[in-house]
């Protein structure tokens, strides 16, 4: 049985089928990429898997447990973590605090201890801070630790979100366009980081537009078009699949036409 398996997942918005009957699975150490043209339903799929949207149909299983429709914080307790396509940073907090907040499940405790500044509360905070600092080092963000997150560049914030998601020590990690807006050097770093995280036994789900990156690191690719799965397989097989080629070319042709009009 797979670590994460999605079966027959679907959702409608105002009668429009955003995602329909999508199934796939991911195992520890695998990098599963979800690709498809704009509007194919990739982020919607992620939002359902991470509990942000309630699926209209289908089911999600995490480590053998049915987690369909479970709230995001309960999924977090079960080891599912994610980043967002449109950044969701805690803007008013420092970079370090953002990642400490990512350790929430490990540092949370009695609110009374927190208000009274009891040793137990200080110990929890300190442990989370040490962990957060280590993650910032790993992602090359240590120097910005005490800056307010809102003041950083887009590429830096992308990495900060990954650091925050890793703070949870996830079993399943959903990355929504981690390399968007990053330059070549940054993209390469993210590429290496994803491979590293997967090598540690995390199942990584990836939505990414950078096809070179996807083809290079994915163990398995799921292709969506108009909310439906049109192909699935290893990178080589998927890139040869005529339906995939058509979906992409068709979409590009349409986009070009729209851009003119």
């Amino acid at each position: 049985m797979s670590l994460l398996s999605v079966s027959g997942l679907g959702i409608e918005f105002g009668g429009v089928r955003a995602v329909h009957d999508v199934s796939f699975s991911a195992d520890p150490g695998e990098i599963v990429s979800v690709i498809g043209p704009n509007g194919a339903g990739k982020t919607t799929l992620f939002n359902m898997i991470s509990g942000v949207y309630l699926p209209g149909s289908g089911s999600i299983t995490l480590a053998g447990e049915d987690v369909t429709g479970m709230s995001p914080h309960r999924l977090a307790e079960r080891g599912l973590s994610r980043t967002f396509q449109n950044l969701q940073i805690f803007q008013q907090m420092t970079v370090l605090e953002n990642v400490i907040a990512g350790h929430h499940l490990h540092e949370r405790g009695s609110v009374f201890a927190d208000m009274l500044h009891l040793p137990s509360s200080r110990r929890r905070s300190k442990a989370a801070e040490v962990g957060a600092m280590a993650l910032l080092e790993r992602l090359g963000l240590a120097r910005a630790a005490l800056q307010e997150a809102g003041s950083l560049s887009y590429g830096t914030l992308k990495r900060l979100e990954i650091a925050r998601a890793l703070a949870l020590k996830p079993k399943v990690l959903l990355l929504d366009e981690p390399a968007a807006g990053c330059n070549a050097v940054e993209t390469e770093e993210i590429d290496r980081l994803i491979a590293e995280v997967a090598a540690e036994g995390v199942a990584v789900l990836l939505v990414e537009h950078d096809m070179k990156l996807v083809m290079r690191i994915s163990s398995h690719i799921v292709v969506l078009d108009h909310g439906e799965k049109i192909a699935e397989g290893d990178p080589a097989a998927v890139s040869r699949d005529p339906r995939v080629v058509e979906a992409y070319l068709g979409a590009h042709a349409k986009e070009a036409a729209h851009a003119d009009g």
């Binding site: 999924l75 977090a76 967002f84 929430h104």
Partner: peptide
């Protein structure tokens, strides 16, 4: 931190387990 996190982004706060 959990409170301030949810002030910053409620959905992100939920996904870190708040």
């Amino acid at each position: 931190r959990a409170l301030r996190a949810l002030h910053g982004s409620e959905v992100a706060a939920k996904t870190v387990g708040v």
